[in-house]
Simulated scan of single mutants.
Amino acid sequence: MPHSRDNNRLVLTEPVDAATIASVAAEVAGNAGWPHQAVALLWPGAAEVAGALARSGWEVEELLLMARRPGALPGAEGAAVVDQREVHPLWDRSWRRDLAELGERLDDVVAQLIGREQLNDRVVSVSDVVVREEGRVVAAGQLRVDGATAAVDSVLTEPDSRGRGHGDAVLALCLDLAGRAGCDLVVLEAAADDWPRHWYARRGFEAIGSTWSVDRPA
């Protein structure tokens, strides 16, 4: 899945200077044939290096790590766990809206971004949660369980179906599933400069740290 930055990136857990990151990222991406150079800066205090990379032309995003205990939220009644293939049409529509500028490459990129999801099942337990309107999936999210830790990911609602509590229903069922799986912690990542972080905060998630995602074309 070479177009998936989540699956194809350099992961750094200890401090590395910006020049070294740029050099090694270029080498790794070139050897692997990736169409991009992507790096995850996971050590505490990586903001300074992320800033240096931004000044040299990299796209930089701060991701907040947010967490809460499993526990009941109202509104889970409208959500259900389904086979992941039922979510594919929703993902397809969403990626096509977000990546329309890719033109003739769009079909291949979208196919890879949807196809990569099956890879998660090899290493964690994945539950796909949806809400339907008139039989059509209009909202979805994932719960990924690894031991006693659960992660919420890929929460999404169709634009025309927002404001109806579907996101709450998806999140409520994810938290319920985490509790039933014996997890004592539920985590997620949210962009530091976007509204979802505040939506999650109102539902009991607290920011406990941050990482940085940096990328540029290869």
Rank of each mutant, 00 (worst) to 15 (best):
M1D: 06
P2Y: 03
N7Q: 13
L10K: 01
V11C: 09
T13E: 13
D17F: 12
T20S: 13
T20P: 05
V28G: 05
G30H: 02
W34S: 00
V39Y: 06
L41G: 02
G45N: 06
A47Q: 14
G51L: 05
A54D: 08
G57Y: 14
W58L: 01
W58S: 03
L63R: 15
A67L: 04
P70E: 06
G71K: 02
A76K: 09
D83M: 02
Q84C: 01
H88D: 10
L90V: 05
W91T: 00
S94K: 01
D98M: 06
L99V: 11
L99Y: 15
A100H: 15
L102A: 06
V110T: 08
D121N: 08
R122M: 03
V123Y: 12
V123N: 01
V124S: 12
V129H: 04
V129W: 05
V131Y: 00
R132M: 03
R132P: 12
E133Q: 13
E134D: 15
G135D: 01
A139V: 00
L143I: 08
A150F: 12
A151T: 07
V152F: 12
D153I: 03
E158N: 06
P159M: 01
R162T: 11
A169Q: 11
L171H: 05
L175W: 08
L177K: 04
L177H: 07
R180M: 05
V187P: 08
E189G: 14
A191K: 11
A191D: 14
W195C: 01
R197M: 03
W199D: 02
Y200H: 05
R202L: 08
R202S: 11
G204Y: 02
G204R: 03
F205D: 07
I208M: 07
G209F: 12
T211E: 11
W212A: 03
V214Y: 13
D215S: 14
R216E: 06
